[in-house]
Simulated assay, not measured.
Amino acid sequence: MESFHALLEKECIAWSEIKNFTHGYIIIDDYIKFYNKERIHGSLSYMNPNEFIRKSMLIRICQ
């Protein structure tokens, strides 16, 4: 979790000029969606989490 928060700060918050709470909420929500749907993760064999889960499910179904 600490690693995620560090990435959130480095890749999202530091690059954004947050105007108010609602704007900050939207920016962080968008980053979380990006993190889970698009951003590749070294610990997941350089796949995004959604792709990793899909492939893991296919492997289980095929076994």
Rank of each mutant, 00 (worst) to 15 (best):
M1L: 14
E2K: 15
S3E: 14
F4R: 10
L7N: 14
L8K: 15
L8N: 05
E9G: 09
E9L: 08
K10Y: 06
E11M: 08
C12V: 02
C12T: 07
A14F: 03
S16K: 12
S16H: 12
E17V: 14
I18A: 03
I18R: 05
K19I: 11
T22D: 15
H23N: 11
H23P: 01
H23V: 02
G24N: 05
G24C: 04
Y25C: 02
I27E: 07
I28F: 00
I28H: 00
I28W: 00
D29P: 00
D30Q: 04
I32H: 02
K33G: 01
F34T: 01
F34Q: 06
Y35E: 08
Y35S: 12
N36E: 06
K37I: 05
I40L: 15
H41C: 05
H41D: 02
G42V: 03
S43Y: 08
L44K: 05
L44S: 06
S45D: 09
S45P: 01
S45H: 08
M47Y: 02
N48H: 11
P49M: 03
F52M: 02
I53P: 07
I53Q: 08
R54N: 08
R54L: 07
K55E: 05
K55N: 12
K55A: 02
M57C: 13
M57Y: 14
M57N: 15
M57P: 08
R60V: 14
R60C: 12
I61S: 14
C62H: 10
C62I: 11
Q63D: 13
